[in-house]
């Protein structure tokens, strides 16, 4: 059975902070830092936003674009590394908020930055096997970098929801392929507020090895070369890594243009590839082939080979805001307000 994306929705918080503002506080050359990372501002969630509210807004934008009965949704999986609860699912709230409850299955996924794409694969299996009509896969995060750490320049917030089904598909998923090893490049222990990372160890043996291996494996399986694709999106912890990995494998800058959103909003972690994919679908035309490779620390990569169908011409894209529209109209914060919003200030209790 053919399966693919039936609808999608994105959400990016309105607030932003610039690297020069972060650098100002820590005595670092923020402009140079931003250039090095290719991040010129990052999104910041409001003090009342979290992975759950971002997932709900993304899922509602996804529902606005189709006339699907929410009761036909058989599964909702929310992939994130910043679920507000350690125990208690994020997905149940999403399910209630889009009125898909109670006859469905829900679970939260965690695989660093690729939990959202792992959810897409799970939904593909459930829909493809005929177990359900639609499955919803969400990748969303409100990631934190420790104050002063390099991660603070990139860790941001946002998410996207993708509805996987077998009818009225706007982007058919022709192949998927994953590459997984045990590589401790980035982690967060239970109860810790901020993640830890292995510095340069997150580069070659982690991000690059897994993305390149996954990309090669996927193209071998699909029998394709980079030239076959109109668009390519790679996990984007910063602007530099995906640009370098794309070039290394022979993808052009033009192919990566639509999906590269990190320079404007930073690293949305589990939201990164789902949001990049949403940005591509916002503008893709029938027949476009899309190449997408997610990466999650710890470590693994999920790859997708997709084809945009004719269905996209009648798809109601404009019933919800595009990624580009959400990237526009930002509200910039100073570091003090950012620290207040992100709970980095200890409050006395009256």
């Amino acid at each position: 059975m053919e399966v693919g994306i039936v609808s999608y929705g994105a959400y990016v918080p309105r607030y932003r902070i610039k690297p020069e503002e972060i650098g100002r506080v820590w005595g670092t050359d923020g402009i140079a830092m931003g250039k090095g990372l290719m991040i010129f501002s990052k999104s910041v969630p409001g003090p009342d936003e979290d992975t759950i509210t971002i997932s709900v807004e993304a899922a509602r934008n996804m529902m606005r674009r189709v006339d699907v009965d929410p009761k036909d949704i058989g599964a909702i999986y929310v992939g994130s590394e910043s679920h507000p609860y350690a125990v208690k699912p994020s997905g149940t709230i999403v399910a209630e908020a889009i009125e898909a409850s109670p006859e469905l299955t829900v679970a939260d996924f965690e695989f660093a930055c690729k939990a959202g794409t792992a959810a897409i694969q799970t939904c593909m299996g459930l829909v493809g096997s005929g177990m359900m009509k639609y499955g919803v896969a969400i990748g969303a995060d409100t990631s934190q970098g420790a104050p002063g750490d390099a991660l603070e320049y990139s860790a941001s917030a946002g998410g996207a929801a993708h509805m996987i089904g077998a009818e009225k598909i706007i982007a058919r998923i022709d192949h998927t392929y994953s590459y997984t090893t045990d590589t401790p490049d980035f982690w967060r222990r239970e109860g810790q507020m901020y993640p830890s990372h292995g510095g340069r160890f997150t580069g070659e043996p982690a991000y690059f090895k897994h993305i390149v291996s996954c990309a090669r494996g996927l193209m071998k399986k699909a029998g394709t070369t980079p030239d076959d694709y109109a668009h390519a999106v790679f996990h984007q912890p910063n602007g530099k890594f995906p640009t370098r990995v794309a070039k290394q494998m022979g993808f052009t800058e033009a192919q990566g243009k639509l999906g590269l959103i990190v320079p404007h909003i930073g690293n949305t972690y589990s939201g990164a590839v789902p949001l990049g994919l949403a940005a591509i679908l916002d503008e893709a035309k029938p027949g476009d082939r899309i190449f997408a490779i997610a990466y999650g620390s710890g470590a693994g990569s999920d790859g997708f080979d997709m084809t945009v169908t004719d269905e996209i011409s009648t798809f109601k894209r404009d019933r919800a805001p595009t990624v580009k529209e959400q990237i526009a109209n930002p509200k910039y914060l100073d570091y003090a307000t950012y620290a207040k919003f992100r709970g980095k200030i200890t409050l006395g209790r009256g």
Partner: peptide, 15 residues
């Protein structure tokens, strides 16, 4: 949909 309140840092979050 946003967070309305939470019952302390260990408590339930209300949306």
């Amino acid at each position: 949909l946003r967070k309305l309140s939470e019952e302390g840092s260990a408590g339930v979050i209300h949306y």
